[in-house]
Nucleic acid binder design. Structure first.
Lengths: 225, 225
DNA sequence: CTTCGACGATGAGTATATGCATAGTGATAA
DNA sequence: TTATCACTATGCATATACTCATCGTCGAAG
């Protein structure tokens, strides 16, 4: 999860960064409105935390500009100004939430969690696929479930990659045969069942919630619980 | 846009309703937590505004219960309790926003607009069929009536998909036999009646208005009430 | 109002298809 | 050789598809 903080006061920015990084977020800081806008356009952050009072371009103008350019990233605004009108303007201009300084950190964290919750499943980079706590690194050809590394054979990896790329979608055996086995017509064997079984043994074993589901008569789905 | 208000104090509920309706929202009111939960399960509201202090089941428990049942509707919580811990709990349990009473109406409206904004353009991009509050997701192979998930077998799904694609049109048994059963000539059995019966049991059960109608001597129609 | 027939709904029971665990085969490489 | 991998074969358990006999409902005619 990557968070962009747009804040000119270094002490506040640093305070937020420390706390967020301690919770496992990657944090970058922009020190004025134009810089913030540019960075938000350049990289798909999962959340933007923006002060209202900023040099060069105020927070509300920055938010309005980003929304106009169809940047949908959730935005949390911070401000010393606590007047009704400021809050209303901030939200109407496209922000998703608004907190008044001084901010209590645990409240901020709760809001951050709320705003980033729906996102999960978002892409982070091209070479990593994620479903729930299952992570597939296409470059390294490794897989992890939570902290546990998983050893996959080539075919197992191919199959899992295909299922992860289509997470949430039910995939028929015919489609799997075509896409993973390069079979043009239906397969006469039960290889698919066997390989799904092998994946399940490696991925879903233990108390962890099952990710691979059978839809009888239809096919298989990889779905977050 | 439909909003559910869960609030036991009639004066506050009425005040909110008036203001929201003046802005063009459709509003329904539940007067306790269990009733709110039930209504939220029955109908896919665009937003839920819930008090924390409620009879029979408090707001936080209600939110937690809804989230557990995969209801993703945005939820805005209201409370007289303004302590940090309450706010954090409310947000962590699955609420999207939190306001402390007494609420200024213009602030509330701004939050409501922020929470309902992402909804509008979002849907309908995937392969989704809809009739009234019945929703069929062809990718996920799932069906919902309102917010209630419905489990369908492969054949049931095929039949329902065909009826939904031809909603409002009366479909003869012969046509159904051809399209869903791949029978070239009339079927000698009553499978169709049986499967229509199964679908009715799953879809039309409960107080919800019936969607599947028999046209005697002709066939069946799936029609919004 | 009653009776009858046509049509449709329903519950129980059977047959079939589907999915899966397990074991086994052959090929390939260390 | 031994280990690993891709794939196949078998047989069991179960969900699903389908059939049949019976029951209900409705409208028209007596």
């Amino acid at each position: 999860m990557h968070i962009l903080i747009v804040e000119d006061e270094a002490s506040i920015a640093g305070f937020l960064r420390k706390g967020l990084e301690a919770s496992g977020f990657h944090v970058q800081i922009a020190s004025d409105g134009l810089m913030g806008q540019k960075m938000a356009l350049d990289y798909p952050y999962d959340l933007i935390i923006a002060d209202v009072n900023l040099p060069r371009q105020n927070g509300q103008d920055m938010v309005a500009a980003l929304r106009k350019q169809e940047i949908e990233t959730p935005i949390l605004m911070l401000s010393a100004l606590g007047t009704t009108q400021d809050i209303v303007t901030g939200l109407d201009v496209g922000a998703d939430d608004y907190l008044v300084k001084p901010v209590q950190f645990d409240i901020l964290m709760a809001r951050v969690r709320a705003l980033t919750r729906r996102q999960t499943g978002h892409l982070q980079s091209e070479s990593i696929l994620t479903v729930s706590d299952l992570v597939l690194n296409l470059d390294e050809r490794t897989a992890r479930r939570g902290n546990r590394p998983i050893n996959l054979t080539a075919k197992e990896f191919q199959l899992l990659e295909y299922l992860m790329r289509n997470q949430g979608r039910v995939i028929s055996r015919v489609t799997i045969a075509e896409q993973v086995w390069d079979m043009q017509y239906a397969m006469s064997s039960n290889s698919i069942e066997v390989y799904v079984g092998l994946l399940r043994k490696k991925i879903d074993e233990g108390g962890a919630p099952k990710l691979i589901h059978t839809v009888i008569g239809e096919g298989y789905v990889l779905r977050a619980p």
